[in-house]
Computed example of a mutant assay.
Amino acid sequence: MTTSRLALRRAIDIDSIALSQLSQQTWRETYLEDLALPIPEHDVEHYFRTNKSPEWYATKIADPLGATWVIEDKVNDEMVAFLILGQSEVPHPEFCIGKDGHIEYLYVRRDRQSQGIGQQLMNVALSWMEEQFPARPVWITTLACNLKSQKLYMHYGFIKVGEFYCNVGDTKRHFFIMRRNNHLS
């Protein structure tokens, strides 16, 4: 996707700081503000240090088995969305490590939602998954209370196939596991 204003491209190593900042901003907007999850600030900060740091993103960008894309606003010279794909494990008995792909993160900044950016990233994700994991299922996880993301994923043929819990610090979060058969168009 390239318009006069927005550009889609693969992330490069120097993007790790901007990705960290964008993910923290979007995470706060989505989970703390929009969904009003009661997560204490010390747990949020710990999560950011371990799962949203520039070093964490540098590792994802460099992963030869994954792919990271960003969408930039060229006018404002800022990142507005990103997508991380890979093979990180999904806690489901049918997930096959090394054979199945996982859409790990798809974040769109709140002020850029409902502009087709999420759909553009999903199209990129599904195309890449078909190339990397032909005829294999594609997996994604989402918070059980995040109905907006679930609606997007269901539009692309994902169905709920399980659930699990994980913690942000001491705060337990409930997730849905969703799967899409990759041969769908």
Score class of each variant (00 low, 15 high):
residue 14 I to W: 14
residue 48 F to C: 06
residue 25 Q to S: 09
residue 25 Q to M: 04
residue 43 D to T: 04
residue 6 L to Y: 15
residue 11 A to T: 09
residue 42 H to G: 00
residue 45 E to W: 00
residue 41 E to H: 02
residue 36 A to R: 11
residue 17 I to D: 10
residue 2 T to I: 14
residue 83 L to R: 02
residue 55 E to K: 14
residue 36 A to S: 14
residue 82 F to E: 04
residue 46 H to K: 12
residue 38 P to S: 15
residue 64 P to M: 00
residue 49 R to P: 01
residue 78 E to P: 01
residue 41 E to K: 03
residue 19 L to N: 03
residue 11 A to Q: 09
residue 61 I to R: 02
residue 3 T to C: 06
residue 7 A to E: 14
residue 53 S to H: 09
residue 65 L to K: 12
residue 50 T to L: 08
residue 78 E to H: 10
residue 68 T to N: 03
residue 35 L to R: 03
residue 71 I to C: 08
residue 8 L to D: 03
residue 72 E to I: 11
residue 13 D to R: 14
residue 62 A to P: 05
residue 68 T to L: 07
residue 6 L to S: 03
residue 65 L to G: 03
residue 43 D to C: 04
residue 26 T to I: 03
residue 33 E to R: 08
residue 75 V to Q: 15
residue 6 L to F: 15
residue 59 T to K: 13
residue 33 E to M: 08
residue 84 I to L: 07
residue 61 I to H: 02
residue 2 T to V: 14
residue 33 E to A: 09
residue 31 Y to W: 11
residue 61 I to L: 07
residue 83 L to C: 09
residue 12 I to D: 12
residue 27 W to K: 02
residue 72 E to S: 13
residue 55 E to I: 10
residue 2 T to M: 10
residue 50 T to K: 08
residue 8 L to I: 08
residue 4 S to E: 14
residue 64 P to A: 08
residue 69 W to D: 09
residue 19 L to D: 07
residue 39 I to P: 03
residue 34 D to C: 02
residue 32 L to N: 01
residue 22 L to S: 02
residue 14 I to C: 11
residue 10 R to C: 14
residue 8 L to A: 06
residue 50 T to D: 06
residue 76 N to K: 15
residue 12 I to S: 12
residue 83 L to T: 06
residue 81 A to E: 03
residue 24 Q to K: 14
residue 24 Q to I: 04
residue 6 L to M: 10
residue 51 N to T: 06
residue 32 L to V: 08
residue 32 L to H: 04
residue 74 K to C: 11
residue 20 S to H: 01
residue 28 R to T: 14
residue 37 L to C: 07
residue 71 I to Y: 08
residue 47 Y to T: 00
residue 80 V to H: 06
residue 67 A to D: 01
residue 68 T to F: 01
residue 40 P to G: 04
residue 35 L to V: 02
residue 14 I to T: 15
residue 73 D to K: 10
residue 76 N to G: 11
residue 21 Q to W: 00
residue 52 K to E: 12
residue 63 D to N: 13
residue 43 D to H: 11
residue 32 L to G: 05
residue 28 R to E: 12
residue 10 R to D: 13
residue 37 L to D: 07
residue 45 E to D: 12
residue 69 W to F: 15
residue 72 E to M: 12
residue 19 L to G: 01
residue 6 L to I: 09
residue 12 I to F: 11
residue 43 D to E: 13
residue 41 E to Q: 11
residue 19 L to Y: 05
residue 45 E to G: 00
residue 41 E to L: 09
residue 31 Y to K: 00
residue 70 V to N: 06
residue 52 K to D: 09
residue 4 S to I: 10
residue 8 L to E: 06
residue 9 R to S: 10
